[in-house]
Design a protein around this nucleic acid. Structure first.
Length: 566
RNA sequence: GGCCCCAUGGUCAAGCGGCUAAGACGACGCCCUCUCACGGCGUAAUCGUGGGUUCGAUUCCCGCUGGGGUCACCA
């Protein structure tokens, strides 16, 4: 009865009962094995790679099973909340085609709204719900108010920190202080009443069953059987502002919203005993858990570290800036999520990753290193499969945003740009020059006079007179209407005339018999026209650039050679 | 430090008691070839360590070592 009285004093305004709440959250009507999963970010910044990673798994698992995938905003920490972050989060998720069936959404005016029957989906709007259950726990003697001030707690944390740094010596002291604090759990009703009447702020703590010898066994769908000591920490349920901590909100929301599978990073594994205890206290059936291994990166000492916010590659918006196609990033994530994805994809090159039979069993238990090499490879393949029109559009869109001048130039003659991107595209073995949209400019800038420059010089052993002779002969013989063979025959002819081998095989047999070979002659022309030693097929390049531009560049090079010293 | 998770090439990994230990990325080499890209072929490179169990361990168990995570009125 004391507890009942205490709960009334603590929550005088809460009239609803858990039963009232439950009525608003009926069981979902879904097929047998349908999974209900969610992504539950806190609006403290951008979408993190480590957040997108599990959310893709959650999305696949839900939709693959005919279930529901929803977005819940965990805005329980007003201090850390960044204005506009939730909206930005939703937008970023959309660009990675993470589609939610319900949850927080953006309405026409760009404001956050709820979609679905199991909301509200922003935890800040669910304060009353949490308090109903908090009141119940207090009335059952499973939770108690703690009137210790933050300053007092700070002292304890400092001791903890020192203990961490200096090891065991300090540990005993920290323990002692903790003991001291835990006396708060034995607060008398009178004492509590005095505090409450004086309007002292309090946090609500769980009254942990503290049997350190008792083990909790649990099966994680990824990690398998795990076992740990039962939670013995009186962790906070409700902060002094009446808003719940993650632990409390997680248990209540995922229960009410009917989440069947909680998919989250493995950094949550250590707090699982807390959650399990709460489910038990509240009489809820716990969901299935999947703790996904972390994505790591190498720190400056060569050690693996959890990919953190400040790291290169952490912010998903950065990939957009770098010019990665979202589908490439998603595919890369799939290769990390399910090791057999690549194999499947090779057999089904034309299918979307959303058709891949995603399997929990194939998920890795150990953390992996983020690998830009691999991302780039995946990305090159993705882009190589796109048609020229699509690539032109994507590059232009990207450029307009991040390289306005280049964007304008591309836009000024779309047909020209598209012809360039069509080079080596569409066949069975497409070129793979682009890993990101930002690779486009260095790859094809020479097609535009604005960006044309002599990036590569002729090799020092190339004979200047031969180059000039080549260019002059080429200029005379060039006919735009020649087909590729005719064109190349003319180049061969120039080779022969200048004592260069037109036949590579002959050259290889007796290289000394020639001044060089047809590859050298081609190179003389290529540098003049593209300013580079390496470029796509010269004939095609010239066809696209057009006679006038090509001849102009040849003249420029001839001038340059004639006027320069030796 | 307590608790927990993890351990096959440089990276991602297949393997689920018996194999010359897949494959992909990367590196290197060769071929194709007018350069590049593509493609083809090939090379180097892996079971952390010590004990068990077993006829037989990469595989199962334990210890060690190593790496990671976590110990807030943050999520």
């Amino acid at each position: 009865m004391d507890n009942k009285y205490l709960s009334e004093m603590l929550f005088p305004n809460i009239k609803k009962t858990p039963e009232d709440i439950e009525k608003q959250y009926p069981p979902r009507e879904l097929p047998q094995d349908a999974k209900v999963t969610r992504f539950a970010p806190s609006p403290t910044g951008f979408v993190h790679f480590g957040g997108l990673f599990p959310s893709m798994a959650a999305e696949r698992l839900a939709h693959q099973s005919g279930g529901v995938f929803y977005l819940r905003i965990e805005d329980t920490d007003a201090k850390r909340e960044v204005p506009g972050a939730a909206e930005a989060l939703i937008n970023t998720l959309a660009t990675y085609s993470i589609e939610f069936d319900e949850g927080a959404v953006l309405n026409e005016s760009g404001k956050i709204a709820d979609k679905g029957m199991y909301g509200p989906y922003r935890q800040s709007q669910r304060a009353e719900i949490y308090q109903v259950y908090a009141k119940k726990l207090v009335s059952e003697g499973k939770a108690y108010p703690c009137f210790s001030t933050e300053e007092e707690l700070e002292l304890i944390h400092q001791a903890d920190k020192k203990a961490e740094l200096k090891n065991t010596d300090w540990l005993s002291e920290a323990e002692a202080k903790k003991e001291d604090m835990l006396k708060a759990r034995n607060i008398s009703l009178e004492e509590a009443e005095t505090h409450i009447k004086a309007n002292h702020p309090f946090v609500l703590r769980i009254l942990a069953k503290s049997d350190p010898d008792k083990k909790v066994k649990f099966t994680d769908l990824i990690k398998g059987a795990v076992e740990f000591p039962e939670n013995d920490e009186d962790f906070v349920l409700l902060k002094s502002d009446g808003i719940p901590t993650y632990h409390f909100a997680h248990v209540i929301d995922d229960h009410l919203m009917g989440t069947t599978h909680v998919i989250r990073g493995e950094e949550w594994l250590p707090s699982l005993p807390k959650h399990l205890q709460l489910f038990e206290y509240l009489g809820f059936k716990p969901p299935k858990y999947m703790h996904i291994a972390q994505i790591m990166k190498l720190d400056e000492n060569g050690n693996k570290k959890k990919l953190s916010k400040r790291d290169m590659g952490a912010n998903m918006d950065d990939y957009t800036k770098m010019g990665y196609a979202p589908e490439a990033v998603c595919e890369y994530i799939m290769t990390l999520l399910n090791s057999n994805y690549e194999e499947w994809h090779m057999q089904n090159p034309d299918k979307s990753y959303k058709e891949f039979p995603f399997s929990i069993k194939k998920m890795s238990v150990s953390g992996c290193l983020f690998d830009f090499n691999k991302l780039n490879d995946v990305s090159k393949n993705v882009i190589s499969r796109m048609d020229a029109e699509n690539v032109t559009q994507k590059v232009t869109e990207w450029a307009l945003k991040y390289d306005a001048e280049f964007g304008k130039i591309l836009n000024s003659d779309k047909a020209y740009a598209q012809k360039i991107f069509a080079i080596g595209r569409g066949g069975k073995k497409p070129r793979k020059d682009l890993a990101t949209w930002s690779d486009a400019k260095p790859y094809m800038g020479f097609f535009y006079d604005e960006y044309f420059e002599y990036e590569d010089a002729y090799p020092t052993d190339a004979d200047k007179n031969d180059i000039i002779a080549t260019l002059e002969k080429f200029k005379v013989s060039y006919n735009e209407r020649d087909d590729m063979n005719e064109w190349f025959e003319k180049v061969k002819k120039i080779s022969d005339d200048l004592g260069y081998a037109s036949d590579m095989k002959a050259y290889k047999q007796t290289p000394d018999a020639f001044r060089g070979n047809v590859a050298d002659i081609s190179m003389f022309i290529r540098v003049a026209i593209t300013g580079k030693l390496n470029a796509p097929d010269l004939y095609t390049v010239m066809q696209i650039m057009g006679r006038e531009r090509c001849m102009k560049r040849i003249d420029m090079m001839i001038d340059k050679l004639k006027n320069s010293e030796i």
